[in-house]
Design a protein around this nucleic acid. Structure first.
Lengths: 234, 234
DNA sequence: TGTTTTTAGTGTAATGTTGACACAATTTAA
DNA sequence: TTAAATTGTGTCAACATTACACTAAAAACA
């Protein structure tokens, strides 16, 4: 069956931007390619969409291959389609944005793909237009973390308010007032006090919270206001 | 040259959601297909990406064909990639979101494509997954018109504050307080008083404003706060 | 044992923003 | 000239945000 005989068939790639947070810095999971083309160069994790595969399933497959995780927070970000973006063959790439709890990933799988967690500042030159994709993903993270409660996807199941604050300070690269941050966050009603305390701390132990899963779902699309001034930039 | 011999080549379509505003309702430009497949059914304007064509150029080409306009406000919205979304052949569709000044379009071109402006409420059943695309685009319009000054793209060059208010009331389907709306809008510093008055009015003539193009550019990515309560929904 | 250092947790007053509301001015048509 | 419709602006109360200071807990070390 060929209803569209004159149209071009094109390779459809999937590339994934995978963010993690180690308690101090936002990190990217990048792979040093041990296959051709561009062997030895750094790139995003990617692959091709299969003929009978849903696009979203393709993203899940590729993320699973690299991290060993199935329930990753994923959003479709943007499709990159410059005619010359892949010198090997015309390829359109659909880019996905993923946030993972960095301690959960399968380090064997990561190692076998020759992948590493790299801080944003230290990221190497990437192949093709992957640097543009990363830039776009960082923008998206800043924009969306200010409006929707996605930051939690980068933290462990149980987390403290100071941890969350460090995450936001890393995303926006600004200092935040502890007292105002805490008040604002608690007022969202998204946090449940687990009654436990953080043991890692060398000083006063902070309260461990978890997400109120119910409220998280219902309030996800409502707006919140964690916009730092640096983003309002009038 | 074939670096990726095992990967599948897939049709890449471009579909466009085109919004207009007639002073009262938000409208969609839809086409009644006079070609196969699905001849006689309603759909979005679309086409296939050419082998040597940048994706963004493809969108501009398709929008130009239908509207005769070259400088349309366009954003890439989302790529739809269910394996079975087009029963004719596996096709991935990149959807673009466009806002036009409804009086500017070329009505001859529209007529020759068998297209019509249809209010959102009255929109017919559409082919394939086009209804999902439209739903997504309406969400996007609501979300983004609250955060960035894109509403102006739907109004003539010179417009009045009451016109702008009617536009927002149409987007969000709520009544807005005239005084608060006007205060908020003027405080953005985006409007320039042209000194002219609206002649269409049968009563008191409203001041015609135009966009401050310079400030519009620099402030586009800064946030504003035209979020109706219905969207905050706590 | 108690003193120091570090980090967590909370309160408050000043300022800015938003929402609710009322009145005066302009235009056309009756 | 009066009525009807619509535009334009002012004010006050409620709410949210900012800036800032003190107390409490835990471990390290004298």
């Amino acid at each position: 069956m060929n209803n569209y005989p004159q149209a071009s068939r094109i390779l459809v790639a999937i590339d994934c931007i995978i963010f993690g947070f180690d308690g101090k810095d936002i990190k990217l999971l990048l792979i040093k390619r041990n296959f051709e083309p561009e062997k030895g160069k750094w790139s995003l994790m990617g692959g091709f969409l299969n003929a009978d595969e849903d696009l979203a399933d393709g993203a899940v497959r590729i993320l699973y291959n690299l991290t060993g995780l199935k329930n990753i927070y994923v959003e479709q970000l943007e499709t990159f389609g410059k005619a010359d973006r892949d010198p090997g063959e015309r390829t359109v790439s659909v880019v996905f944005f993923a946030l993972i709890k960095i301690d959960d990933h399968d380090s064997e799988a990561v190692k076998s793909h020759n992948a590493s967690w790299i801080t944003l500042d230290a990221r190497p030159k990437l192949i093709f237009d992957h640097e543009k994709m990363v830039t776009r993903a960082i923008e998206h993270l800043k924009y969306n973390a200010a409006l929707h409660p996605i930051g939690f996807e980068l933290l462990p199941e149980r987390f403290t308010i100071p941890q969350l604050q460090k995450l936001y300070e890393a995303i926006y690269n600004i200092p935040i007032d502890r007292r105002n941050f805490s008040r604002k966050l608690l007022s969202t009603g998204l946090l449940i006090d687990t009654g436990q305390k953080n043991n890692n701390s060398a000083t006063k132990k902070a309260t461990l919270y978890k997400l109120d899963a119910e409220r998280y779902k219902t309030k996800f699309h409502s707006f919140w206001n964690f916009m730092p001034d640096s983003m309002k930039s009038n």
